[in-house]
């Protein structure tokens, strides 16, 4: 999670206007999810992977690791879709078995659906990774602020983002201090130590929030965390490129739309 954050600040696409990156990721994801054939999602997956690896310069090993994260969920989900269990007359199975009136197996339709689900999910995930690997959270929050998302929401988001790191660091220090005194030597002490760590962390965080409030107050805080944005000029060529890619994907989705499934169920 922290590695993603660091790549977001150092990727080669960092200077690109965050609005362009957000639009690209979101529009592409919508096309990917709306598509009813695997062709467009596959194209999305390829394009996003290419953008992340070659335009943003993220190491492929790291990207591959990220992509395998959702795989376990995905495989379980896809399997339940692919395997069809029926008690009635057996549907046209590609392979399967009937035992005591219950038929378990793959039908062509369920297999197609599973494949579609698989590539769609991976495609959508790649869109989100593209966004999070190229756009720092600070800029996403800035965008939300410009889109007039309620101030409370935006302020909470930015404070949480800032203090995740502070609190993580505090927890890490406590963990090191505990384990250097054999705090995690056995399972029993580990449970005790962990409990103390969590309780302590809560106290410390509360204390820190008080200190933060004092510091804000001394800078004339009056209820609004207003900050100045650095204006960024959108790039015409980037917008054209994004429009072209998404148009291509939309056409691809429409052209192949329903094609494969329609052929199976005429």
């Amino acid at each position: 999670m922290f590695a993603i954050d660091q790549y977001a600040y150092t990727s080669r696409l960092r200077p690109v206007h965050p609005g362009e990156k957000l639009a690209f990721a979101l529009v592409t994801m919508v096309i990917c999810l709306a598509s009813v054939s695997p062709a467009a999602p596959l194209a999305v997956l390829l394009i996003m992977t290419g953008a992340v690896l070659f335009r943003a310069g993220i190491p492929w090993r790291f990207y591959l690791k990220l992509m395998t994260l959702p795989l376990s969920f995905l495989i379980i989900g896809v399997l339940t879709v692919a395997v069809s269990i029926s008690t009635g007359p057996p549907p046209p199975l590609l392979s399967g078995r009937t035992l005591g009136g219950i038929t378990i197996g793959f039908t062509a339709a369920s297999l197609q659906l599973a494949v579609l689900l698989f590539v769609k999910s991976l495609g959508a995930v790649s869109c989100l990774y593209f966004l999070s690997l190229t756009t720092p959270m600070v800029e996403v929050i800035s965008l939300l602020r410009r889109f007039k998302v309620p101030a409370l929401f935006v302020e909470l988001m930015s404070l949480i983002y800032r203090f995740i790191f502070v609190i993580m660091e505090t927890a890490e220090k406590m963990y090191v201090a505990q384990s250097s005194r054999w705090g995690y030597a056995s399972i029993k002490t580990a449970y005790i130590s962990l409990g103390q760590l969590v309780a302590n962390l809560f106290g410390k965080s509360y204390h820190r929030s008080q200190a933060l409030f004092t510091a804000l107050q001394s800078r004339c805080y009056n209820g609004d965390l207003r900050v100045l944005e650095t204006p960024r000029a959108p790039s015409r060529s980037n917008i054209m490129l994004i429009a072209a890619v998404d148009l291509f994907l939309a056409v691809l989705a429409l052209y192949t739309g329903g094609g494969l499934i329609a052929r199976i169920h005429p």
């Binding site: 959270m137 930015s158 800032r162 933060l212 805080y221 009056n222 965390l225 900050v227 100045l228 650095t230």
Partner: peptide, 19 residues
């Protein structure tokens, strides 16, 4: 760490003068 509230250096410094 208990004074800096923003993850962006520029935004952080702009808070006081904006107020």
């Amino acid at each position: 760490d208990s004074q800096l509230f923003s993850a962006s250096v520029f935004q952080e410094i702009s808070f006081g003068p904006l107020n």
